[in-house]
Amino acid sequence: MSEIKKKRLSKRELMAAMLDADAGRRSDDAEVSAFANLSQQIRQSVADTSPPPFELMWQGVEARIEANAREAANEKTAKSWSFGWFLAPIGALVIAAVVGYFVFSGQEGLDNRCYVDSYDVESGIILVQQDLNDKDGATVIWHLDEG
């Protein structure tokens, strides 16, 4: 550039030199060589700034996302299974306790029914007052003296 300024070319000469350089015409003229060199540098720089491989990058990102999701799912499954080892037996224990409670202590309410198997007295009368159809009704075993 400094050489260009030194020679102080006219606009027309400068344009001609630029066109020669762009056309790749050989010239011994230093101006033309300088422009050719500059043109090559510009082309090279433009070629260097080609867009990055977005497609490739995006494929990499997608692969990473998939890998992360797979890893998280595996971890979750592993956690749920390891938790299940504790949870399942505890669940069975609770169910057994509840079933056992209802089976063995199934008290449906007060039941006053009384079954008299035997009685023995030397004197007097025994009267059994009861209604076995009435769960709530209490039995009375009367022992009455004679006379």
Partner: peptide, 13 residues
């Protein structure tokens, strides 16, 4: 007087 009975748990006679 002697007697033998069977009753439900919690029952009264």
């Amino acid at each position: 007087f002697r007697t033998k009975v069977r009753i439900h748990s919690g029952g009264t006679f």
